[in-house]
Simulated assay, not measured.
Amino acid sequence: MEPFKNLLNPALVAEAGARLRRHAPRFDAEAFTAQACAGLEALEMKARALQICAALEATLPADFDAAAGLLEQSLAPPTAPGEISAAPGLHEGLRGWILWPVGEYIARRGQRQPERAMAALHALTQRFTAEFAIRPFIVQHPALAFATLQRWVADPSEHVRRLVSEGSRPRLPWGQRLHALVADPSPSLPLLRTLQDDPSAYVRRSVANHLNDIAKDHPGLVAAWLEAHLPGAPAPRRALLRHASRTLVKQGHAPTLQAWGLAPGFDGQARLRVSPAHVVLGGAVTIRLTLQSKAPQPQTLVVDYAVHHVKADGSLSPKVFKGWKLVLAPGETATLEKQHALKPVTTRRYHAGRHGLAVQVNGQAVASAHFHLQLPGG
C-alpha cells in the first residue's frame, strides 16, 4: 500500500512550481522546488505540507494580494460536485493535495487582510478543501468569519457550502481545535439549521458530523435539536440526524434514544460467541449474537459492538463499530452474525494480545467475549 504521505511528492512540487511560473514568469520556480523538496521524502504528511508552505512564503510576492492573485490564476477549474480533487496531475492547474500547503500559506500570510484571504479560500475550496485553512480566521476574526460563512450558505458551489459546516466543526480531525466553539457552539447553529436541508448529500454529511462533534460536549443541545427537527422530517434530514446521533446512541443517552423511539437497554437475554479464539492479523473473527426478548411489547434495538484493542503499553482502547438494527417481537429470539476484519489500516497500529469484544444494545453493554490476536510471524 502506497504511504499516504506520498501524495505530496517532489514531482508534484516541481509541477506546481512550473504552473506558478506560467502565470508569473518572474516566479523563481527552481528556488521554490529546491527548498520545498529538501529532505521531503523523509518527512511525514503534515510536515511535508508545512515545508512546502515555507517554500511558498520564501518565493511568492511579498504583497499578499499579489500572491493570492497569482495562486488564484494558477488554479484548475472547479472540481465536480461531491469531489475533493479530480484526476492526478496539474496539467489544468493547481488542484488536489498540493493545495493543502497553499491553504496553510493563506492562513499564515492572510491574517492582516482577512477579507482578501477568505476570498482566496472561497476559490481554493472548490479545487481541494479549505477546512483547515479557514480555522485560524474563525479564531482571530470571528465576526468577519461568521458573517462570511452566513453569506456562503447560499453559495452556488456545494464545495463552498460544505466549507461553512466543515470548516467550523469544533473538533475537526487533523484540524485546529476551535476551543470557543467547543465551549459554546451557538454561533454555528444558524448555519447548520439552513444547511441540514441542503440539496447536496456531500453538504448534509458534513452537517451530521458537525452535530456529532457538538454532541460530544453538549449532548442536551443535540437532543433538543432532534426534538425540534426530527418530527415530520423528510427522509434526507432523518438520515442526517441519525448520523448526527450516532455517538449519543452508542452512549445510551436517554433523551436521544427517546427521540428515535428506542428504549434504554434491552429487556431479555444475550449470548455472544466470538470465533476463532486465536486469529492472525489480516484475518477476521466471526461475531455470533443471540438475543431473546422477555418484554411484553416489541423492542426496537440498535446493536453495536466495541472492539477493545490492545495498545503498546498493554492497556485496552475501545472502538465502537456499527452492528444491526432490528425490531424484536415479544418472546422472539434472533441470531445475528457478522465478520469483523482485522486488517492493517493507516489509522491504527495493531498489537498482539488478548482483545476484548463487547456488544451493546441501545447504548448499554449486554455481553462480552475475547480473542487473541497474533501478528504475522509472531
Score class of each variant (00 low, 15 high):
Ala66Glu: 15
Gln73Gly: 00
Val139Arg: 14
Ala67Asn: 01
Pro101Met: 04
Gln176Asn: 06
Ser74Ala: 15
Ser186Glu: 14
Pro173Gly: 06
Gln73Asp: 14
Gln51His: 02
Gly96Glu: 06
Glu115Phe: 00
Glu158Ile: 13
Glu158Pro: 13
Asp65Gly: 06
Gly96Val: 01
Trp100Thr: 08
Ala154Trp: 10
Ser74Asn: 08
Gly175Thr: 04
Trp174Gln: 04
Pro187Asp: 08
Gly167Pro: 05
Asp155Ile: 12
Val139Glu: 14
Leu56His: 03
Leu70Cys: 00
Ala87Gly: 10
Gln150Leu: 10
Ile84Val: 09
Pro136Cys: 07
His159Tyr: 11
Ser85Lys: 07
Ala58Met: 08
Ile138Glu: 10
Leu71Gly: 00
Arg116His: 10
Ser168Lys: 10
Gln176Gly: 02
Leu99Trp: 02
Ala58Tyr: 03
Ser74Tyr: 12
Ser74Val: 09
Pro114Gly: 09
Gln111Leu: 08
Asp155Leu: 12
Ala119His: 13
Pro81Arg: 12
Gln111Ser: 01
Ala183Tyr: 00
Ala123Pro: 00
Gly96Met: 01
Glu131Gly: 08
Leu178Ile: 12
Ala133Pro: 07
Leu124Lys: 05
Gln111Gly: 03
Gly89His: 10
His179Gly: 06
Asp63Tyr: 11
Trp174Asn: 04
Asp65Glu: 14
Pro156Glu: 04
Pro88Ser: 09
Gln113Tyr: 00
Thr129Asp: 13
Ala130Met: 09
Val153Cys: 11
Pro77Tyr: 02
Pro142Arg: 14
Ala55Trp: 04
Thr59Leu: 05
Leu99Gln: 01
Glu83Cys: 13
Ala130Cys: 10
Thr125Gln: 11
Phe64Ala: 11
His159Trp: 06
Phe132Asn: 05
Glu104Ala: 13
Leu50Met: 07
Leu149Asn: 07
Thr79Ile: 13
